[in-house]
Design a protein around this nucleic acid. Sequence first.
DNA 1: CCGCCGCCCTGCTTGC
DNA 2: TGCAAGCAGGGCGGCG
Length: 270
Amino acid sequence: MPELPEVETIVRGLTGKVVGATIARVEVRLERIAVAPPRVNFAAALTGERIVGARRRGKYAVLELASGSSIVTGLRMTGRLVVARNGRRELPGTHVVLHFKGGGLLRFSDVRTFGRMRLVGPTEAWDDALGVEPLSSSFTPEAFIGMLSGRTTPVKAFLLDQRRIAGIGNIYACEALWEARIRPNRPSGRLTKPAARRLRRAIIDVLERAIEMRGTSIDDYVDADGLQGGFQNNLSVYGKQGRPCPRCGASIVRTVLAQRGTWWCRDCQK
DNA sequence: CCGCCGCCCTGCTTGC
DNA sequence: TGCAAGCAGGGCGGCG
């Protein structure tokens, strides 16, 4: 499931491969995947557009177009954005294909069809509801402590809430809480200041290390070249029920919190 | 504003 | 062995 490090890796790949390309033709095979503003046709509006930039916001990959519009792709659980040459074998569940002048193409595939490719106009405030970027200078200890204060929601649910911090999903929420030695169900507002500082540090560290390893490939994630990441070999708790905690040796448990599987160590996460 | 819940969807796992 | 039910999960809309 692509979270911040996976989308960052995809976007870095796209930067070298599709920025500068002109869209010659657009194939939309499953209409509900390709979303456009009212009375705008996704395929027609994109035909002839040139891609001038690629960036990430939260878990979204943004392709900036010469006209000022953008293509915002949310990958959700199983979405993939892969660049290929014409004729190369397709991933299963390919729903949208951007064909470029000169023969290259960008495929969006998603077996569960939760993901969306959205055409967004130049002034459309599509990311207003997204919170702070955890790897930006705005994510200060003071800002984080302020965001947590007064909240009763379990700290793990807080980390998953994209309106607060943008980009953290289930894997990195579990990993960051383990690294900061904090129980996932602790009420957010009841973290001590040192605990909040540890958690902020852990969030930044785990995201940066995962980016360095080009993301976590457990089920479906691949980068813009179709290649797997490497951080699945560096996970401490995610998916590890019954295995020893790398810090204290106690058995990792799996519980359910905020409707999500949650892996943690009962002994050293307080 | 806040928090909670059900829904979307399909492939894999589980259980009889 | 075969089949159906159950489960997984990010984001969003509805509800209290």
